[in-house]
């Protein structure tokens, strides 16, 4: 029993503190402070509102609508980012040429061009997808670049000496050593993609998670707004922790990169 508690201490303490947090929040606003629905809400109302949104199907359709530009933008960022990163790592001169420009762009808050992107490409899927692409492509470029540069030449030579062909070199050396870098890049990119969705939908949209959050706040429907914020948090945690889990499962030798 004691061993069990020791092994699972972190999850137990964690879930206890989350439950306590929500109970405390509920209790505080039920008994201690009178609830002013224009500035605060409480968990019972939030979950009730969320339940209603789920039943009416509104939540699912919003998730679908936000998901579309996410898939297009993120997919394009993966393809272009890996291609550019590979070129930069493979040909040293391409790396020299692109590195300073891309570093400067990566360091600057590119969200700032959101109004221009929306004006150029419209308020539909394409504007948001391009915004997400612009935000997400850099982690993929730089991580692929670093990954390709760090491929061990010795391993390439060993495979070649033992009679491996080009395909063996790619599948047995290059892909396994670059992939962890790309996955780590995906973890950063996911966060930036979520920012892109929110920025795009705060600016101009007629549906979607970000749009609902802004709209409920304008309507002072704080319970529903908190419900959608919770959904956004759950989605974000699922994505990042999912990738982290996949990293640990697939590349156990490089945990903590």
């Amino acid at each position: 029993m004691n061993d069990f508690v020791y092994k699972w201490r972190n999850p137990i303490f964690g879930s206890v503190s989350v439950v306590l947090f929500f109970l405390g929040w509920e209790a505080l606003l039920t008994w201690a402070i009178p609830l002013n629905p224009f500035i605060m809400s409480k968990p019972s109302l939030i979950f009730e509102g969320l339940w209603l949104e789920m039943q009416s199907g509104q939540l699912w359709s919003d998730l679908l609508i936000s998901g579309q530009p996410f898939i297009f933008g993120f997919g394009a960022a993966i393809v272009v980012g890996i291609f550019v990163g590979t070129m930069m790592g493979w040909r040293a001169r391409v790396g020299y040429a692109l590195d300073p420009l891309l570093t400067a762009l990566y360091a600057s808050p590119l969200v700032a061009i959101a109004p221009l992107v929306i004006i150029f490409f419209g308020v539909g899927v394409s504007g948001k997808a391009i915004l997400i692409f612009v935000l997400c492509v850099f982690p993929f470029v730089f991580n692929t670049y670093a990954g390709v540069k760090s491929v061990d030449r010795l391993l390439v030579n060993v495979v070649r000496s033992l009679g491996g062909n080009e395909r063996d070199i790619y599948l047995k050396v290059i892909v396994p050593s670059v992939l962890p870098f790309i996955i780590a890049g995906a973890r950063y990119a996911i966060g930036r993609a979520l920012v892109g969705i929110l920025v795009g939908e705060f600016f101009a949209a007629t549906a979607g998670i970000g749009y609902r959050i802004a709209w409920f706040s304008d309507m002072f429907e704080l319970s529903r707004m908190f419900g959608y914020i919770l959904v956004m948090m759950v989605v974000a945690v699922l994505f990042t922790e999912g990738i982290r889990w996949a990293e640990r499962a697939a590349f156990p030798w490089r945990v903590g990169m």
């Binding site: 201490r9 972190n10 137990i12 303490f13 964690g14 879930s15 206890v16 503190s17 989350v18 947090f21 966060g191 979520l194 920012v195 929110l198 920025v199 705060f202 970000g210 959050i213 802004a214 409920f216 706040s217 304008d218 707004m225 914020i229 956004m232 948090m233 974000a236 945690v237 994505f239 990042t240 922790e241």
Partner: peptide, 20 residues
């Protein structure tokens, strides 16, 4: 152990969501 879930959740979520 007690604060970890909150830190993970808030760090993963784009803070922009709290702007409204």
């Amino acid at each position: 152990a007690m604060l970890d879930p909150f830190i993970t959740a808030f760090n993963a979520t784009p803070r922009l969501v709290f702007l409204p």
